[in-house]
Amino acid sequence: MEIIKTGVAGTLESCDASVSVEEHGLLELVIESADSRFAPRVREAALAALAELGVRAARVTVREKSALDCTIRARVMTACLRAAGLEKAPWEALK
């Protein structure tokens, strides 16, 4: 999936994540966690979502407020779709 503009998704409400995806030469992932003890889990979840969509170059910022993995995945994917200018999710490609 190719990132062509800035896409954002999510909120900073408790249990949610705010994700922004921008054009960038390589893949850069910044995690800001409300609870740093879960930061490694959040990173894993975000990387898995990016890999699933085939995003290889982008600057991705995840600011999360104790969101669960499923929420991280949903917000990252939506932000990527918007940043790629796609209207619909490539459902067939998703696990």
């Binding site: 003890r37 879960f38 930061a39 889990r41 669960l68």
Partner: peptide
């Protein structure tokens, strides 16, 4: 299963 295991405090 829901939360995963956090790093220790």
């Amino acid at each position: 299963r829901i939360t995963g295991v956090p790093e220790p405090v």
